[in-house]
């Protein structure tokens, strides 16, 4: 088994000097970040700044070429067993929901617990219904994703992630593909989760969410973490010129 030297410590994610290249283009130029258990972190930054790429390296949807990533004491390497173990601990919600269109809502949620965690069907179904109720749409269990609104689909995607009982939740621009009137229902769910003990890494443009829920706001630009601070300090008193520029652009309208 993997050594869990830091498993009992407070630091659940440790990234040291993470680099990522796409051919000649360096998307991540040495990102270092330590996340404490239960911490809620919001990552913001202009498009192409590497924020999505960064959180996707943490569950190996993107491979980093240099640096070290340790999640809950497991070092991310080419060892597929480590990768599988990390993916069980890290849940991810995508911009485009990525629900499985050929399965019902309930089957979407039960698929991974039954096949990865090897839960028997009755237990998986019970947990799936529990999480579906938690995100507020228990009545949609037997519909197909194509029959739901965008906001409902994203909530199903969140329930699907939660049913795997991860320690860490990662959100990759979860509201960017939603109509304005549906953003609130998803943000409400996210807010509920952020205050109930999960470690959260969220890439989002929702500054209200960042302001009210985050323990720490991180600003990325050009593949680097430019600035990080508590939300109050970050929005009131940005230190870096690029941060100020970015904030003035998105807060001006």
């Amino acid at each position: 088994m993997t050594t869990k030297s830091t498993a009992e410590t407070d630091e659940i994610i440790i990234c040291r000097d993470v680099h990522k290249w796409y051919g000649d283009f360096e998307a991540l130029r040495g990102v270092s970040l330590t996340v404490k258990r239960g911490e809620v972190i919001v990552i913001i930054g202009p498009s192409g700044s590497g924020k999505s790429t960064f959180i996707r390296t943490i569950n190996r949807l993107e491979e980093h070429q240099q640096g070290e990533i340790i999640v809950d004491g497991i070092t991310l390497s080419h060892d597929i067993r480590n990768i599988a173990e990390i993916r069980r601990e890290v849940g991810m919600v995508f911009q485009q929901f990525n629900l499985f269109p050929h399965l019902t809502v309930l089957e979407n949620i039960m698929l991974a617990p039954m096949n990865v965690r090897k839960w028997p069907r009755p237990k998986a179904e019970e947990r799936a219904r529990h999480w579906l109720a938690r995100v507020g749409i228990p009545e949609q269990a037997d519909k197909y994703p194509g029959q739901l609104s965008g906001g409902q689909q994203q909530r199903v995607a969140i329930a699907r992630t939660l049913c795997m009982e991860p320690l860490i939740l990662m959100f990759d621009e979860p509201t960017s593909a939603l109509d304005p009137e549906m953003i609130k229902e998803v943000l409400d769910v996210m807010r509920d989760l952020a205050t109930s003990g999960y470690t959260v890494l969220a890439v989002t443009h929702e500054m209200g969410f960042a302001r009210t829920v985050a323990d720490r706001v991180i600003f990325m630009d050009g593949g680097l973490i430019v600035e990080q601070n508590t939300p109050t300090e970050f929005f009131a008193n940005p230190q870096n010129e690029r941060t100020r520029q970015f904030l003035s652009q998105i807060l001006s309208h």
Partner: peptide
């Protein structure tokens, strides 16, 4: 099949 389907499957820990 969209890439996102494979990404979601991998993120959920499916082999």
């Amino acid at each position: 099949v969209p890439r996102g389907q494979s990404e979601a499957a991998r993120a959920l820990g499916l082999s």
